[in-house]
Write a protein that binds this DNA or RNA. Structure first.
Length: 418
RNA sequence: GGAGACGUCGCAUAGUCCGGUCGAGUGCGCCCGCCUGCUAAGUGGGUAGACAGUUUAUAGCUGUCUCGAGGGUUCAAAUCCCUCCGUCUCCGCCA
């Protein structure tokens, strides 16, 4: 949720942000209007309630003979108060409804426009070039007997898979390497709940435009999370914390996504699946430090890509492709040889105070409380196997394991099944 | 799955039976003083949040709301009723 004071004091800034996102600008004026109405209604209600409260004290103290008359008056007051209260509540509801719809205000410099309007910040490494016809990750996975989508489909349906042997080890290797990096940098490792209550899911904003992406267990009124960000954001909900130093968590969890609306997209292999593992960074920090922290998160992501010896680029995602909570987002994309393009491996968002305001996570300064900033970023996911397999394949179908991962996998090469 | 107890202002607790004098007492902790070679003790005061109004003000003042959450009864609810959430104990069952 955006800051209501900003709405009152600088609506133009919010309008500009909405415009850059291609979002509804008229929401801003509607919200301002609704806010005015709300305040008027609230004052009206509160002053009459004050009268009622004062009168109530009179009733309590009055001698018996006067009580009946006073109670009769009180009844009248009570009806009026109830009516005004209902009006005030309705006005307040309208405000929050509109406020929820307004996206986070983008940071200066975020490129305007949609999905294709990103700006490339840098490209690192040489795009992998083969002297032979490279195989895609699924072909390799089957050749090496480490990815089995056919049996995944048999057991669970489309977009499910088995990772086996060195494939399973490789995934754990990436996760463990990421976790080590995180711990070295002061993160608290966390294994998080993947089923969460509606309030938690709503608090992180995933029930808005992404609601069709989320699995829901009706019998238990629980949602399956698509990222540990959900649980980590909920971790300090309704708390006052001390973010003098950023409070960092590295959350590992299995992630579940319905992938509704992406039928026919990336159907081959494990690029886009219903269930995968992810190691996610989550940072609570002072709002003044958020932009620096964002650069740090990006830095750690790049370290991971580099450790996996992958060619990649960093893009500054355009406003329209940000997601409602993010004020700025970087994607790190690895080169995927058989597709001839870069594909997203990690994403890091600076949500400024937007998410924390909704989740009510605050800190104290000079006796005042204000929302903290939250940031998140991927450190490793199952999808990385795609890039690793494809970029490090050799002509005979074997795959070289990057040096940094070797200790975790326990071998240097994955050989085709004999 | 069955039975029961409980959820109050940082922590611990009083208040709930018999609704108004309770936005709420006490102890501990913490903060500001006083006292005292230092410390401890003693002593006086303060010690939640959100929102609105007033205001140059995020100071002060005024008001409203919040006693796990949401509803209901009532002129009036921490207190009575209902639903939900959570914690604990006992029994049963079980990876």
């Amino acid at each position: 949720m955006i800051d209501i004071n900003l709405l009152r004091e600088n609506p133009e800034l919010i309008k500009a942000s909405q415009t850059a996102r291609g979002a509804d600008v008229s929401l801003v004026d509607k919200a301002i209007e609704a806010d005015k109405t709300r305040r008027a209604k609230q004052s009206e209600f509160e002053s009459l309630r004050a009268e009622q409260n004062a009168h109530g004290k009179l009733v309590a103290q009055a001698p018996k003979e006067q009580k009946q008359e006073l109670v009769a008056q009180a009844k009248e007051l009570s009806t009026k108060v109830k009516q005004l209260e209902a009006e005030a509540d309705k006005a307040a509801e309208l405000v929050s409804e509109l406020m929820m719809k307004i996206d986070n205000v983008i940071l200066d410099g975020v490129p305007p426009g949609g999905e294709d309007d990103f700006v490339v910040i840098k490209e690192v490494g040489q795009k992998t070039d083969f002297s032979f016809e490279p195989k895609d990750h699924l072909e390799l996975g089957e050749l090496l007997d480490i990815i089995d989508t056919e049996r995944g489909a048999k057991v669970s349906g489309a977009r499910f898979y088995f990772l086996k042997g060195a494939g399973a080890q490789l995934e754990l290797a990436i996760m463990n390497m990421g976790l080590n990096l995180a711990v070295e940098n002061g993160f608290t490792p966390a294994i998080t709940p993947t089923l969460v209550r509606p309030e938690t899911m709503a608090g992180t904003g995933f029930l808005g435009e992404h609601s069709s992406e989320v699995y829901y267990l009706e019998n238990d009124e629980l949602y399956l999370t698509g990222t540990s960000e959900v649980a980590l954001a909920g971790l300090h909900a309704d708390e006052i914390i001390d973010p003098e130093q950023p409070i960092r968590y590295a959350g590992w969890s299995t992630c579940y996504r319905r992938e509704a609306g992406s039928h026919g997209k990336d159907t081959r292999g494990i690029l886009r699946v219903h269930q995968f593992n992810k190691l996610e960074m989550f940072s609570y920090c002072h709002p003044d430090q958020a932009e620096q922290e964002h650069e740090r998160l990006l830095g750690w992501q790049e370290q991971m890509l580099q450790a996996c010896e992958l060619p990649y680029r960093v893009i500054d995602v355009a406003a329209g492709d940000l997601g409602s909570s993010a004020a700025k987002k970087y994607d790190v994309e690895a080169w995927v040889p058989t597709q001839g393009k870069y594909r997203e491996l990690t994403s890091t968002s600076n949500c400024t105070t937007f998410q924390a305001r909704r989740l009510n996570t605050r800190f104290k300064t000079d006796g005042k409380t204000q929302p903290v900033a939250t940031l998140n970023g991927t450190l490793a996911t199952t999808r990385w196997l795609v890039a690793i397999l494809e970029n490090h394949q050799r002509e005979d179908g074997s795959v070289y394991i990057p040096k940094a991962l070797q200790p975790f996998v326990g071998k240097e090469i994955i050989e085709p099944k004999g």
